[in-house]
Design a protein around this nucleic acid. Structure first.
Length: 237
RNA sequence: CUUCAAUUCGUGCU
């Protein structure tokens, strides 16, 4: 079973979903019963709208297999529905979960952001905090994206206060999201400040700052930064 | 020993 699960996970990871599903069927044909790992993995192959119906079948399968109370399986279900654009179902699964963790909430928030329901994303973020669940760097990255999309600078600043409180302000993903959020809000100066003070800069940091400049009429600065990026050995994509 | 969430352009019938 571990071998089957590893193979399925490998295909999902390399985005060969059809192969993953084939293996999932083949293992059952050969008498194996999919467990929480197999089901969790195969849900990861159903994360686009075309596969929503298949994802629903897998959902039924998790119930029949009795793994529907397992946290990681439910998290995978939330993700599946959220990425397929069936966010109401994602929310329903989350609401009915007996146990939730930061992944559960972040998956739902990410779904709202992905489908441009940014106000709703912020609402869910507040709801999450009301339950006492502590957000992490990944949660903040999504929430900041929502703030950027809404050009909601005030919300963004409130979120920043939380980021400091939780102590993820030096996280590179959080910094990248902050740069983008400020740029989207038209606060290029704040974006620059975050960029300058970043303790670590990856390709994403440079991209966020350069596109921020490009979109706000700072073309020269963008080009300058691009050269600078090359000179410190970061390869453009 | 194998599963679950995230950030940085665009994805535009000019």
């Amino acid at each position: 079973i571990v071998l089957w699960n590893s193979m399925i996970a490998g295909y999902v990871l390399s985005e060969q979903c059809v192969k993953a599903v084939e293996l999932f069927h083949q293992m059952q044909w050969e008498g194996m019963k999919p467990d929480k790992y197999s089901l969790g993995s195969i849900l990861g192959a159903c994360i686009c709208p075309e596969y929503l119906n298949y994802g629903k079948q897998v959902h039924t399968h998790t119930i029949k297999s009795g793994v529907d109370s397992i946290l990681s399986v439910n998290n995978a279900l939330v993700t599946m529905y959220a990425r397929c654009g069936s966010i109401d179902n994602a929310k329903l699964v989350l609401e009915e979960m007996a146990e939730r963790n930061v992944v559960s909430w972040t998956a739902l928030i990410g779904g709202y952001v992905l489908h441009k329901h940014d106000e709703e994303a912020l609402k869910v973020f507040c709801q999450m905090q009301r339950t006492g669940m502590k957000p992490n760097d990944i949660t903040f990255a999504s929430v900041l994206r929502a703030c950027g999309n809404l050009a909601a600078l005030e919300n963004g600043k409130q979120v920043l206060a939380q980021i400091f409180k939780i102590g993820v302000d030096t996280n590179v993903c959080v910094c990248n999201a902050l740069v983008r959020m400020y740029a989207q809000c038209g606060s290029i100066g704040d974006a620059r400040k975050v960029f300058r003070n970043a303790s670590e800069r990856d390709l994403g940091t440079w991209n966020a700052m350069i596109s921020g400049c490009a979109q706000h009429g700072h073309g020269k600065e963008g080009l300058y930064l691009f050269e600078k990026m090359l000179s410190v050995g970061v390869k453009p994509d």
